[in-house]
Computed example of a mutant assay.
Amino acid sequence: MSATQSLAPQGYGADRKWFAKLELKLVPFVNKTHLKQLAFVGPLRIQRPFYPEDGVCHLYILHPPGGLVSGDKLHIHAHCSAHSQSLLTTPSAGKIYGQDSDGVVQGQTVHLQLADNAECEWLPQETLIFNNANAELDTRIELADTARFIGWDLVCLGRPASDAPFHQGQVKQRIRVWRNERLVLNEHVQLSAGSELQQARVGFAGNNVFGTLLATGVDFEPALLEQLRQLLPSPEFSLTQRLGVLLVRYLGDNMNECRAGMWQAWRVIRPVLLMREVCIPRIWLT
């Protein structure tokens, strides 16, 4: 038996696994949404709930290691009870580092469940995919009939600011949305560095930053879509609406531009969807 094989049960080798899980239940009480239940395994935590706007519960999800190495699996599960109002975000960019010599997958699964008349915003900061990563990102959103949701997923391949491109590795990303147990959005990207998908004009066209904002819960008027088209630069940003889901997409080379555009879209969409102006989480400004 090799040294690597003998160490595998201790967390090394092709079988290595580092598991973390966070489960939340948000419940309205009187005029405020409370964190009713909290359970965690491994290095996933939250700061205490904040209430910078009426009774909306702002939660900051913390991953103290700061990044994912081979074998890391993060699972975030939030159940939003009827009439609850919540905003979930992260204090900094997520990082997925290069894979080990065994190529063990590293990634994150997010599962959000919204009961009738629940409102939830899932607004994490961007994810940085380091060169030679083997990343899997899976977001699953289950909505009752009258639930309202807005969220985004922003990804940067490599670290352009540090002249560290993504020329080796792979990324799998999946985003699925159900409304009343009907699948209304199902997207699956499987991207290998240097592949035709990454380089072709009908794919990523050599760009390294991509993002998707989705909003659902009301019928958005054509005037709102036109306002967003006028506000966001083209061709980097595009908009579609289908099966009750509004999508704002970015494809380009500048995460600052992507982030700023998504913030602007959020400012326009939130008052229409949730009947309140935006309230910037203070963690974004520190």
Rank of each mutant, 00 (worst) to 15 (best):
T4H: 12
S6C: 09
P9T: 07
P9Q: 04
G13N: 02
R16Q: 13
W18Y: 13
W18L: 07
F19C: 03
A20T: 05
L22N: 10
L22F: 06
E23W: 06
V27W: 10
K32T: 12
L35M: 13
L35A: 06
L35H: 08
A39V: 03
F40V: 02
F40K: 11
G42N: 03
P43S: 04
I46D: 05
I46L: 07
R48A: 10
R48W: 04
R48V: 00
F50P: 00
F50M: 13
Y51E: 08
V56N: 09
Y60V: 15
I61G: 09
H63K: 06
P65T: 04
D72K: 05
L74H: 05
H75L: 10
H75Y: 09
I76E: 03
S81P: 00
S81G: 05
S84D: 02
L87S: 05
T90H: 02
P91C: 05
Q99T: 12
D100Q: 04
D102I: 00
D102Q: 11
V104Q: 13
V110L: 06
H111A: 13
A115M: 10
D116S: 08
E119T: 11
E119Y: 11
C120A: 13
Q125F: 01
E126M: 02
T127V: 14
T127A: 13
L128S: 12
F130T: 12
N132Q: 14
D138F: 01
I141E: 12
F149E: 11
F149L: 14
I150A: 14
G151A: 05
V155C: 10
P160T: 01
A164H: 09
P165T: 00
P165Y: 01
P165E: 03
Q170L: 05
K172C: 06
K172A: 15
K172M: 12
Q173R: 11
Q173E: 07
V177W: 08
V177A: 04
R179A: 07
R179S: 02
E181I: 00
R182E: 15
L183K: 11
L183F: 03
L183G: 06
V184T: 07
N186M: 00
E187T: 08
G194N: 09
S195K: 09
Q198H: 13
Q198N: 04
A200Y: 04
A200I: 01
A200G: 00
R201N: 14
G203D: 06
F204V: 03
F204M: 15
F204H: 12
A205P: 01
G206F: 02
V209L: 08
L214S: 04
D219P: 01
E221S: 15
P222D: 11
E226G: 09
E226N: 14
L228K: 07
L231H: 09
S234Y: 06
S234F: 02
S234T: 15
P235M: 03
E236Y: 01
R249I: 05
Y250T: 08
G252E: 07
D253I: 01
N254G: 01
N254K: 03
M255Q: 13
M255V: 14
C258W: 00
C258H: 00
A260S: 12
A260E: 13
M262G: 05
Q264E: 14
Q264N: 09
W266I: 10
W266F: 14
I269Y: 04
R282E: 11
I283V: 13
I283Q: 06
W284M: 10
